[in-house]
Simulated assay, not measured.
Amino acid sequence: MERRRFTRFAPLAALAAMLVSTGARAQLSVGAKAPDFTAKGALAGKEISFSLSKHLKKGPVVVYFYPKAFTQGCTLEARAFAEASGDFAKAGATVIGMSNDDVPTLQRFSKEECRDKFAVAAATPQVVSAYDVALKRDGNATAFTSRTSYVVGKDGRIVFVHSNMDWRDHVKLTLEAVRKLKAGKKV
């Protein structure tokens, strides 16, 4: 059954694979002030409003952008973040996944693939632009976001950026960054 779900999205996976060659690059650099946002989203299947500034009062926030809910790479990445959610919590960090999916899709994704462990939210065009995560092909923006992870320190500054369409290192690298923050080490 799992295999059938991914097969259904083969055209999107093919599109994502094509777009990988364009090289996702995040313009926001370490030390930059993270653009504040409030976004509609979902946690455990319920609609929520997520405010970056509100969550930064509690500690660092991992803001990770992914292209499209329920595609193979994005599903695997969400599951990996869900599995590591306890480790992020121990390090004092909040995780928020961002895509341009609509809220009903995010409600399902938060329950089924994020396993009720962390919130996902709809990245508006303004948020996509502010974080420079529009996925581009041949220099033109597509309807997808690039796979880019930012770790935002409690002071609202970006302390770590990882932009790569391969989902596999996003969890490991952002977790290392928040652990270093907690230990008072340079990220």
Score class of each variant (00 low, 15 high):
1 M>H: 11
1 M>A: 12
6 F>E: 08
6 F>H: 12
8 R>Q: 10
9 F>G: 03
9 F>R: 13
10 A>S: 12
12 L>S: 03
12 L>H: 08
13 A>F: 10
13 A>I: 00
15 L>S: 03
15 L>V: 09
16 A>E: 14
18 M>N: 10
20 V>C: 02
20 V>S: 03
21 S>F: 14
22 T>H: 10
22 T>W: 13
23 G>E: 05
23 G>C: 05
24 A>C: 13
25 R>N: 05
27 Q>T: 09
29 S>L: 04
30 V>C: 03
30 V>G: 02
31 G>T: 02
32 A>S: 07
34 A>P: 00
36 D>P: 05
38 T>E: 15
39 A>H: 04
43 L>M: 09
46 K>M: 04
46 K>D: 05
46 K>T: 11
47 E>A: 15
48 I>W: 15
50 F>S: 10
53 S>N: 07
53 S>Q: 12
54 K>R: 15
56 L>Y: 10
57 K>Y: 00
60 P>M: 12
61 V>N: 05
62 V>N: 10
62 V>W: 07
63 V>Q: 03
65 F>I: 04
67 P>C: 11
68 K>D: 06
68 K>T: 05
71 T>P: 04
75 T>I: 02
75 T>M: 07
76 L>C: 08
77 E>R: 14
77 E>C: 12
79 R>F: 03
79 R>D: 14
80 A>E: 11
80 A>Y: 04
81 F>H: 07
82 A>Y: 12
82 A>W: 11
85 S>A: 15
85 S>N: 07
86 G>S: 14
86 G>Q: 11
89 A>L: 09
89 A>W: 04
89 A>Q: 14
95 V>G: 10
103 V>S: 12
104 P>Q: 11
106 L>I: 06
106 L>N: 13
106 L>T: 06
108 R>M: 05
108 R>F: 05
108 R>L: 10
109 F>E: 05
110 S>W: 05
110 S>F: 07
113 E>S: 14
115 R>A: 11
116 D>V: 04
117 K>M: 15
117 K>N: 11
118 F>N: 07
121 A>H: 06
122 A>G: 00
128 V>Q: 09
129 S>T: 02
129 S>H: 09
130 A>M: 02
131 Y>G: 00
131 Y>K: 02
138 D>F: 15
138 D>M: 12
141 A>F: 04
143 A>M: 10
147 R>H: 06
148 T>I: 14
152 V>S: 02
153 G>M: 05
155 D>Q: 04
156 G>F: 13
158 I>N: 07
158 I>K: 10
158 I>F: 11
159 V>L: 08
160 F>R: 06
166 D>A: 14
167 W>N: 10
167 W>R: 09
172 K>R: 14
172 K>A: 13
173 L>A: 07
173 L>C: 03
174 T>S: 14
174 T>E: 06
178 V>S: 07
178 V>C: 08
178 V>M: 10
178 V>Q: 10
180 K>M: 14
182 K>S: 04
186 K>I: 03
187 V>W: 08
